[in-house]
Nucleic acid binder design. Structure first.
Lengths: 241, 241
DNA sequence: CCTACCGATCGGTAGG
DNA sequence: CCTACCGATCGGTAGG
């Protein structure tokens, strides 16, 4: 990597006294830099705002004008950042699944190397999944769950890999639990039903209600596992709060 | 109840020979009757066709013109039967939930009076629920699951009663299973998670695939219940096929 | 990113 | 239920 050598033009600072009369920074190419950063910010702002509106009103029920206004832009501007409305939906979904994969991977790696307790692995998977669905900044994955069908096949393909990667993260724990008799039914159907039970929570969960996400996690494990978890099991890092 | 007495006018059949020259039935008031029956037929046709399109394309993604065309009408005609697009959505949802309540009630009543086997009750509930979601003529309830939020509060109220009635049908079996140690977790959360696991199947179930609805039922009970069902349990009438 | 605009389509209605 | 139509709104674009 090349570092800008000391003394190069872009490194030169105007003397303090000059700022009074000429408050602007050297004119080298600040525009370009600011433009790039703003582009990223505005693009990300559009994705965030679109995720929220798509979740609240549905994809077809949200106009690109709604999104532009919520992002503080005018009606045509989203199309400077995204070539179409569905490309914006793609970006929302991809951002959501990518983030979910990252969080699950990190959460599982934070477990002790002692892999002998698959129930602890399932607990991590369930808890993080609920946080991705119901926690702060949690509009992306719900949009995927309910608007996935609106994408045409060519748009689904790149995201399908991420979805498969996410689902694959569940398999080792489920296989181990099945082998130890803690889980019955085929792992394939068990995975679909467990994820379904959790995904359905976006329809009824009330963050202001009595149940916390930890409560839901307890209930899910109690429902799916044949025996109570070993109490000597691992304590989890609270890094998902 | 009053039965039409024999020999009353509506009971009179024109002799066979008369049908050749005067094939039409007595002209008393056939128009009115036909009109009423046709109204019902066209209205029901609209509900059926709307259910299918709402499920495939979503509520906002389906135009009233799409629906009219699929029902063989012109663009303005649906508004002769329904005062608005959302009133049509209401009718679809109400029809779906009402039918589901009827089927579950009948299915449970067909069980032997020997109520001592709550697992058998749960099996009936799960199996019928899957058939309502995935069987023939199964677009209505999925539409409710995914478009419920599009109704405004005044539209939800009448349907909410039916939804509550449907959910209440599950409680006796779940409470009995919990009491016998066959089900852990609170019954409230267990009901939500079990229904969620089943409802999610509309996203992935392929009728042409290997798994049958009976397979899904087996998997669900194996996943949720702590011990295998007693093999001496009831045989179910196959009246839902 | 804004301005100004396009053709298409939307839910719904009057009048028969 | 059809015909003819309304105002509103839609996704998207050219040109700057």
């Amino acid at each position: 990597m090349l570092k800008t050598p000391p003394g190069s033009p872009t490194d030169v600072e105007a003397p303090e006294s000059a700022l009074v009369l000429a408050p602007r920074r050297p004119r080298g190419r600040p525009r370009k830099t600011e433009q790039e950063r703003d582009d990223g910010n505005r693009r990300l702002a559009l994705i965030r705002v679109a995720a929220r509106l798509f979740r609240q009103q549905g994809y077809a029920g949200t106009s690109t004008r709604d999104i532009a206004q919520a992002a503080g832009m005018h009606s045509g501007s989203p199309f400077y950042h995204f070539k179409s409305k569905s490309a914006l939906l793609c970006a929302v979904i991809e951002e959501g699944v990518r983030n979910a994969v990252v969080r699950q991977t990190e959460g599982l790696q934070a477990l002790p190397v002692d892999d002998a307790n698959p129930a602890a692995r399932l607990r991590v998977l369930v808890r993080q999944h609920l946080d991705v669905l119901l926690g702060d900044d949690s509009d992306f994955v719900p949009v995927m769950l309910y608007e996935w069908q609106r994408l045409d096949p060519s748009q689904r393909a790149p995201i399908q890999h991420l979805k498969s990667a996410y689902e694959a993260l569940w398999m080792p724990a489920l296989l181990a639990l099945q082998a130890s008799g803690q889980l019955r039914a085929s792992v394939g159907l068990a995975r679909l039903m467990i994820l379904g039970a959790l995904n359905w929570s976006v329809q009824w969960y009330d963050p202001a209600g009595a149940a916390t996400l930890d409560d839901l996690t307890d209930a899910a494990l109690a429902l799916f596992l044949k025996e109570p978890e070993r109490s000597g099991s691992v304590k989890l890092e609270p890094n998902w709060a």
